[in-house]
Design a binder for these strands. Sequence first.
DNA 1: GAGCCTAAGCAAACCGTTTTTGCATGTCAA
DNA 2: TTGACATGCAAAAACGGTTTGCTTAGGCTC
Lengths: 349, 349
Amino acid sequence: MAEGNRRVGIRQVAAAAGVSVTTVSHALNGKGRLPQETRDRVHEIAQQLGYRPNATARNLAGGKTGLLGLVISQPADVRFALSDFAYFTYLTAAASAAALDRGYALVLTPSEVGLGAAVGVAVDGAIVVDPVQGDPLVEELREAPMPLVTTGRVVGDDPGRAWVDNDHHAGTRSVLDHLARRGAERIALMTTPTVISYSVDVERAYGAWCAEHGMDPLITKTDQHLTESAGYAAASELLSRPTPPDAIFASYDRLAFGALLAANARGVRVPDELLLAMTATESSHGQSSGPSVTALNLHPDQIGQRAIELLIDVVEGRADGGEVLVPTAIIPRASTKRPVPVRGSKRSG
Amino acid sequence: MAEGNRRVGIRQVAAAAGVSVTTVSHALNGKGRLPQETRDRVHEIAQQLGYRPNATARNLAGGKTGLLGLVISQPADVRFALSDFAYFTYLTAAASAAALDRGYALVLTPSEVGLGAAVGVAVDGAIVVDPVQGDPLVEELREAPMPLVTTGRVVGDDPGRAWVDNDHHAGTRSVLDHLARRGAERIALMTTPTVISYSVDVERAYGAWCAEHGMDPLITKTDQHLTESAGYAAASELLSRPTPPDAIFASYDRLAFGALLAANARGVRVPDELLLAMTATESSHGQSSGPSVTALNLHPDQIGQRAIELLIDVVEGRADGGEVLVPTAIIPRASTKRPVPVRGSKRSG
DNA sequence: GAGCCTAAGCAAACCGTTTTTGCATGTCAA
DNA sequence: TTGACATGCAAAAACGGTTTGCTTAGGCTC
């Protein structure tokens, strides 16, 4: 279809349609004052000629770059390996695809570099993943100012910011409910000291749930390395207490896998003597032995997609702030497979 | 520093330097005929004014997009989870940083989408990671034609293509040597059926090494899911043979972790009764129990960086083909910790 | 002194869009 | 009949650079 010696541009379309380039531009972008008939005709001819607008020219005229940046916030004192987190990979892949769909390109920026003037390319907006409290990058971007969406809130932020997050409050409660229905009476929460909104939300929801259910909260924090070893150590400590918990909710999959190993090592049977649940991504079937672990699925791909959508809305002036909550889904597996007691004769139907 | 009401452009610099925009452009890009003195002066003033060239305008004038695409090739019949591979994460992150350094933006393209006309943005060149034999994407890009660099070769390709890869041949031999020096006499190779140059190279090097050392080759292929379970199953089968191997070289870290579990389960002690080595990335310390596993480090970050460098050379016409080999490094750990026998009285020094 | 060459630098065209401005029409109310 | 006001479209000016040709001044040769 692509005839002619050069790539087909707006001028070729205009010539073929017998109109001016202005009209073509207006018709294709739904602007200006044109009868529907003209719009349709231009569209059709553009289609026939295989016209693809030149994004660079469009960006230049529009004063933008067409680039969006994505940075993963990291605590200053710990360099955890990105690759430990399937979460980031899924989020990033989905975000990139969503951006492409909308004519933007997503560029991953190493957090050491940031997005300041030092970077070779300028971006129209940025996503910061899991901002750690006090991360200077967020401050810097806000000063710029640069359109910004965070996934996970900035702890301590006022309302009105643009962010996308899971509904960790509801998710945590659903896991705790799940464990309680299966007989858990002392549920421990295993989490990390890193101050991101995720940790804060989970702890808070756990605290509230415990208060409501008259359960003593039991929170254990691992060190900052989210490895099986950390989970192993924390679980070993928990299980060696005089009154050990009868359920553990781990806020990262690898902590749960470590906890499972610790239970095995001590001869504590899961799920018979200990219930185990974790927060995870789709891919967290990855543990290699023992019963499969019940998971609260965070849908990082949805987070990534929604973050891009929100960011583009901000960039293009359709939105300013905006709080998007992505629901979580609990996936029961063997580690909590126990009969649910029938209370009284309560039945639905 | 940034004075004036508008962002400083080439015209502002020209005015401040008392020269034309042509001169500024030439001075800053090292083109045209100008005395060094003028170049220096323009540079200095540009610096003072905080001039940053607008990449979009530059691209428009130059007829490029400033975007490079990166796609991970996948076998048609298997969707393995990207996140299983720290390798891809490291490679991608390093590639992105390298691209930014050179004024390009790297965009991750989902392999389902590819890089054809269907994608919203056009790219100046592409990297295909680990092209699987018969991947139509590579064909398509070559037809386009689009500047292309692969990491890992396309199996069956003629020479003259542009690719970056580890020296798997040398790497494999160094692992086998390492195992042999520690007493291994029946080394099994555990790998996968996926046809990428990596698998092919490793198998070939293994075969050659065995022939040279008069060892019977023993290759076991797992199913295509590169999980601990797959490694567990394959290792179990190996260890149940009448004459089991006394060493296993796994071509993926998770296969090795699974093999370790299988050995534990059967009471086979590592490294005393079985030596274990694997191919891996920096982050592959991730197994949760048992001895740490000796690894052949692939340096995916270097692969990513070199691939970008080569691609930009191709895009900008400085290169056409080019074969870049990145060395591997063996990292001895507990799983092969055995005394190396002193042969005769041979000593160095 | 005419002719020629070279170095240094400028003006203007161009890249492919968007957006603003303005000019014909046609329609309708006064 | 005559403004007043939409309507439909075109011309031209951005957007911020790069690139292609000049022009000009000076030095050299004959």
